[in-house]
């Protein structure tokens, strides 16, 4: 090996990656070449410093502290974006309800006789044009989904009184799955007011609850 070749292999030598024959050639060269010897020593010192860096102790309390800081920051984050929320399976219904409302509005424009609830849909659309109202609707839909996850029937019953049809439909659908007799009066009232075509969603929700076998008492 010539001087240039030795220099190119010094790192491999210092790292112990060369076979014994190649390592011996390097050692022989190093005994005669001060320049390469110095470079090899510098590399070995770098590796020793890295070993010392690797050995620096990590404060045992650090992981718990880091976790607390992270949890706290996440808790303080502004609520997630609409698209983020709607990626949750439980919220897909809510998204569908909003889309349905839009579709029904389009049908209304093309043929008013097909509208299920002209006043409420128009009101929803006008209000959702307003950023603040759109935020309220999003908030209500999220509340409904959270209430469903927590099986919070009282909150879902309250959301049945929302001024937004989308919220009321979402709440009714959730209540059909987890609601009890306490919400039947509110659902019956909404069912009576329903003027849309096709199946009455509030009546269907109330019927589902009535058909559900009563849970045995503890």
């Amino acid at each position: 090996m010539n001087h240039k070749h030795i220099q190119n292999n010094l790192a491999a030598y210092v790292l112990g990656e060369l076979d014994s024959a190649a390592a011996e050639q390097i050692r022989t060269h190093l005994s005669d070449c001060a320049d390469c010897r110095r470079t090899a020593e510098e590399m070995q010192n770098v590796l020793r410093t890295a070993e010392r860096m690797k050995a620096e102790p990590l404060d045992a309390s650090l992981p718990a502290l880091a976790r607390r800081r992270l949890d706290e920051t996440i808790r303080r984050l502004p609520s997630a974006s609409l698209s983020d929320r709607l990626s949750h399976p439980l919220l897909r219904y809510a998204a569908a309800a909003v889309i349905l409302a839009g579709a029904l509005l389009a049908l209304h424009i093309l043929g008013p006789q097909t509208l299920p609830d002209r006043r409420s849909l128009t009101a929803d659309t006008q209000q959702t044009d307003n950023e603040e109202a759109a935020g309220t609707l999003r908030k209500e839909l999220e509340q409904a989904a959270q209430a469903f996850r927590k099986r919070d029937i009282r909150t879902l019953a309250r959301l049945l009184q929302s001024e937004y049809e989308s919220t009321r439909l979402a709440a009714a659908d959730y209540l059909a799955q987890i609601g009890d007799a306490s919400v039947l009066p509110a659902l019956d009232t909404l069912a009576r007011r329903w003027t849309g075509s096709g199946e009455n969603p509030y009546q269907k929700a109330a019927q589902t609850i009535r058909n559900r076998p009563a849970e045995p008492a503890d």
């Binding site: 790292l15 990656e17 590399m43 010192n45 770098v46 590796l47």
Partner: peptide, 25 residues
């Protein structure tokens, strides 16, 4: 990856030369 490590070691030795050559660690 091997080439990167060899080059890194050469570079580091070069960058730290002034402090490394003062005295052995």
């Amino acid at each position: 990856a091997r080439v990167h490590l060899h080059r890194a070691l050469r570079h580091l030795a070069h960058l730290m030369r002034d402090v490394l050559e003062r005295e052995p660690v």
